[in-house]
Design a protein around this nucleic acid. Sequence first.
DNA 1: AATGAGCGG
Length: 141
Amino acid sequence: MMRNGIELLVRRISGVPQYSISSSFHIIPQFCSSSSSSASPSSKLFIGGLSWSVDEQSLKDAFSSFGEVVQVRIAYDKGSGRSKGFGFVDFAEEDNALSAKDAMDGKGLLGRPLRISFALERVRGGPVVVPRFWKSKRDRE
DNA sequence: AATGAGCGG
């Protein structure tokens, strides 16, 4: 009775009963939420929370220690010419991107904590290999 | 000019 109550409670909290809770009172945390931390892992990283004084070279220099950086891009405002506070770092290998994300996410660069996630596929401008169909790109459906 | 989550040049 108690165990069933706790199970129901846990299932209510987590919303979806996607975790198989064993009947022997073992509640395993596993990876509780967000099966994928941000998106499907790719070699391109979205770097948010950048200080407005960070340029592409310093950003590349900050991430070059994790692997070969192919492309570094910072979003600048066309009007004011200042940084929008986010950018992109593309690695040669996804493994290096993962390592860089795991190591630099939440860390401070020039006093500001970085928010790193994998970049979305949507690109306007730049070296892109555009597949014919965009709509068939859904993670879990 | 300032602004602080987001997805670009």
